[in-house]
Design a protein around this nucleic acid. Structure first.
Lengths: 342, 342
DNA sequence: CTTGATTTTGCAATCGATTGCGTTAGCGTA
DNA sequence: TACGCTAACGCAATCGATTGCAAAATCAAG
């Protein structure tokens, strides 16, 4: 066998008494090589335990059989990939991608200094890119999309958007959630979220529209900035509670924020849903299991992931794929009282 | 600028009026190049938007700056990476790995035909490998470990094990859980899990020891095979319930199985923890949030992931790192009644 | 202005595969 | 036997970086 390192294609060629070209073609099932000989060479290679070196292959073919999944966490320092929403999305994406025979490369981006996206693209580590969440990088994405096509973003659809995105109808989802709260007779509905993020600002838009449609004065004091981590969200909720502004409902822009709020309310002795109704966003797995079970705007991640990957592969094939919007569904559970309360 | 494709190092060399060698060294911060010239070349490269092609670099350096994370799902067809335990573990590993400046490559293995591990190793896509869960691949792992060193496995420590593993003390964890149930006065404790998996069989060992220590006859009718997916576990639990064998507690070998069992019990009108106590294993995030909150043997995944990656990097550096065992902790919640019941 | 030591720099080989193009082998027909 | 045509196959260039080694440049001292 080999002297030291693992086998190279040249070794297999020697074993099979043919040239490297022939081995390469045989392993690639190239019909230029007669079928029986192909099988023979494949057998020899397999028996010798030979495996193609992907580094070399990638260089020569300019293809890596790998999809990069990027989480731009620039906006929220310290948010780890352990975040439930990201994690669930990642799992779904991974399933879709591996099913198609590609590898998944995870890129956590913390340094969103100039050209971060270009640095990823030009590294040629992947054949296509999924960006999970726009963060505050709308401009960078737009710019990259001009020259780099195999790129799909999970996030809201923004005006003046060049890149291909897949996301929930944020305005509609928020609208539905707030309408539901209004339907329960709630009038002082707080909004928890970071307006700086495009998706959240769309949800804010839906919130405002719902209030306006109900003829309710929109009180800026009820809009509280809240990051995506449990701890900071908890603080934000406490701020709201102790701020003294009266409120009877909370529309949280993520389930994590909603859960943190519920806990903060409980700590303050405020009953959910008795005194305050709470609605979240995402409908992550824990939502159904919390106490009380959380009403939430469901994003169908399974479908979202499939759509993203479908579009990405179309784009990788050179076709032009348009953005897509998924319809969110309000899942009503006990945390906002009313309808489904036992 | 460039004519068509992205810049190559040769282009930068032309721009800076030096040779490629010099550019390469300058970008690598090689002290062979005087500092001021290094900075100058780096500036030119950055301004031109040049990024090193990693495929080429990997080939030449025989290093990819990438760690492969593998999920051998051979034993449980259809188990997706979306499984909560895997997902949480993956997130933790990813955080640890990216923090060290490496990329994470996810490999889902479904085809565990002969040589699957060798195929991954020899592909040279990664500098090191983390295998999450031994599945039924103990032998394959042992064999691979003989020649491939940068490899760490999450799983139980088995006899005759060559590879480096990190895992919970399965026997001790199970023992603690069952002891707790016994302490509550439970005597007919069912065991739900797949004995074919090494980790599970260790937990079974702990289960048996606890019973024996309490002088309780061990009834094989109480041992029910249960896979890791919710649906199949639910079926297994239903089987137990309808089987007619009397039981007053369930030791489930994963939280998913425990939650499925609780739901099956509820459907059969059996009260938890009133009539039957349930204990799970893993203490995943949902466990604390379920109704009733689940008592579970906690695996400290954060610490586990850190340990795995620490050991892996040691091994990549050529050192020899020994296996490690983490001490599990029983987290008592309401699902088994007793102590923490309000 | 030499000489020798030292610092900079570049040539060219190398990593391990893929593939365009030209050559050889094989076969049928005249 | 000679010729043409196709099917198989191999040579050598290529992908884009890194690096050992030797050449060139610089500098200090004599």
């Amino acid at each position: 066998m080999a002297d030291d390192g693992p086998l190279k294609m040249a070794d297999v060629a020697r074993l099979a008494k043919v040239s490297m070209s022939t081995v390469s073609r045989a392993l690639a099932d190239n019909p230029l090589i007669p079928e029986d000989r192909r099988r023979e060479i494949q057998r020899i290679a397999a028996e010798a335990g030979y495996v193609i070196n992907q580094s070399a292959r990638s260089l020569r073919m300019r293809k890596t059989q790998t999809i990069g999944v990027v989480f731009p966490l620039g906006h929220d320092v310290g948010q780890l990939i352990s975040d439930p929403f990201f994690i669930e999305m990642f799992g779904r994406l991974a399933d879709e991608i591996t099913t198609r025979g590609y590898q998944v490369l995870l890129c956590r981006v913390t340094d969103t200094s100039d050209g971060w996206l270009n640095r990823i693209i030009q590294s040629h580590r992947q054949d296509g890119l999924v960006i999970v969440g726009q963060s505050d990088q709308h401009a960078a994405l737009n710019q990259a999309a001009e020259s780099y096509h195999p790129l799909v973003v999970w996030g809201g659809h923004l005006s003046g958007q060049v890149y291909c995105s897949v996301g929930t109808d944020n305005i509609g989802g928020a609208r539905r959630a707030v309408d539901h709260l209004l339907g329960l007779g709630r009038k002082r509905i707080a909004f928890l979220g970071m307006l700086e993020l495009p998706e959240i600002s769309l949800r804010y838009e839906g919130y405002v529209r719902a209030l306006r449609a109900a003829g309710i004065e929109h009180d800026p004091a009820l809009v509280i900035p809240a990051h995506f981590s449990f701890e900071t969200a908890y603080e934000a909720a406490r701020e709201l509670i102790e701020g003294g502004t009266a409120f009877d409902a909370i529309f949280a822009t993520s389930d994590i924020i909603a859960l943190a709020a519920i806990q903060a309310l409980a700590a303050a002795g405020i009953d959910v849903p008795g005194q305050v109704s709470v609605v979240g966003f995402d409908d992550i797995a824990i939502a159904a299991q919390s106490t009380p079970p959380l009403t939430s705007v469901q994003q169908d991640l399974a479908k979202g992931a499939k759509t993203i990957v479908d579009l990405l592969f179309k784009r990788m094939a050179g076709e032009d794929a348009p953005s897509a919007t998924l319809l969110p569904k309000l899942v009503v559970r006990k945390s906002c009282g009313g309808a489904s309360a036992a």
